[in-house]
Design a protein around this nucleic acid. Structure first.
Length: 305
DNA sequence: CCTCACACCTGGGTGC
DNA sequence: TGCACCCAGGTGTGAG
């Protein structure tokens, strides 16, 4: 479940159920879902089994579950990225899901036994055990909700290069705007670059650009500081609204930890609406090929300057 | 260092 | 029904 709102729906669903739970057993059904793990599947299983989950943290589209100490190893976390089609489903111990790639059996002190199925059709997502490293700015590594004994200024090594997301209180607006102004590329490319700002994918890039009336291919070099600030504000509004509606779902693939879909697809103004009327000006929205995917926009409201 | 093209993958839906 | 084809919301890597 890809973009920030959908991943946050997963994070917030996992948090009360897995915080404090012990990992009783781990089954790797497809080793390709360990693409991000540095080592063989046996190493993943050995390092995860028996440990207790301390919380659930998210930065952008990355999730990680800090783990209790294990011998001489430094602080580590179970990292999960959902890629294009990943799901994390909480089930009872008798329920299986098609396309489950990794299965964890958990025991929670109050909620007792449960099963966590990592499901992924395309296998662009993956799990990993990764050492935690100190954040560069001393601020919390990501968002961990209210329950966890975080915030701690730690982040998995493999996530450290990802920028903070626009809903993170430690996101530095001035730094982002300065970095954006230095780029020599199109604005949508920049929005999708997770090392510049994280959490935005194809849907919310198109929605934010539509809201800010900016063409997806407008060069970052000609975007005024004022319009860039407007765009950042619209990004935040779009992400927050989508989050409030439980994320965007077009089909059964993008669901929360209980398998339920969000409602934001009903609130989309541009994404997937090519051929239909622009909700603002009434003229037809268009779709254009861009970066091996599609961009949805209003050619009247979003003119290339 | 920055930018961009490309590789990595499957199965559900659609149309003939 | 069967089957070929199309499509999908992301990230890491390496060339230039």
């Amino acid at each position: 479940m890809p973009e920030l709102p959908e991943v946050e729906v997963v994070r917030s669903g996992l948090e009360p159920a897995v915080t404090g739970a012990r990992v009783e057993s781990v089954t790797v059904l497809d080793t390709r879902s360990l693409r991000r793990h540095d080592g063989p599947a046996e190493d993943f299983v050995d390092r995860l089994a028996g440990r207790t989950i301390l919380g659930v943290v998210r930065r952008g589209k990355f999730l990680w579950l800090p783990l209790s100490a294990d011998g001489d190893a430094g602080p580590e976390a179970l990292v999960a990225h959902l890629g294009m089609s990943g799901q994390v489903l909480l089930r009872d111990r008798s329920t299986d899901d098609a396309l489950t790639r990794i299965r964890l059996e958990l025991r929670h002190p109050r909620l007792a036994e449960l099963r966590l199925n990592f499901v992924d059709q395309r296998i662009f997502g993956s799990m990993a055990i990764d050492p935690l490293v100190a954040t560069g700015d001393g601020r919390p590594g990501g968002y961990s909700g209210a329950l966890a004994p975080w915030p701690d200024a730690w982040i998995p090594g493999q996530v450290a290069h990802i920028a903070r997301d626009p809903l993170d209180p430690a996101f530095d607006d001035a730094r982002f705007l300065a970095a954006l102004a230095k780029r020599r590329t199109g604005i949508k490319r920049a929005l999708l670059d997770q090392t510049l700002v994280s959490g935005i994918g194809n849907i919310y890039a198109d929605e934010s650009l539509w809201a800010a009336r900016i063409h997806f291919d407008e060069p970052t070099g000609t975007l005024s500081a004022r319009r860039a600030r407007t765009l950042l504000a619209e990004v935040r509004l779009v992400l927050a609204r989508a989050l409030a509606e439980g994320g965007t779902s077009f089909d059964a693939q993008y669901v929360n930890v209980n398998g339920a879909s969000g409602y934001f697809s009903h609130s989309l103004n541009a994404y997937g609406r090519h051929g239909q009327e622009c909700p603002r000006c009434g003229r037809p929205l268009e779709r254009a090929s861009f970066m091996n995917r599609n961009s949805h926009f209003c050619p009247h409201c979003q003119r290339l300057r």
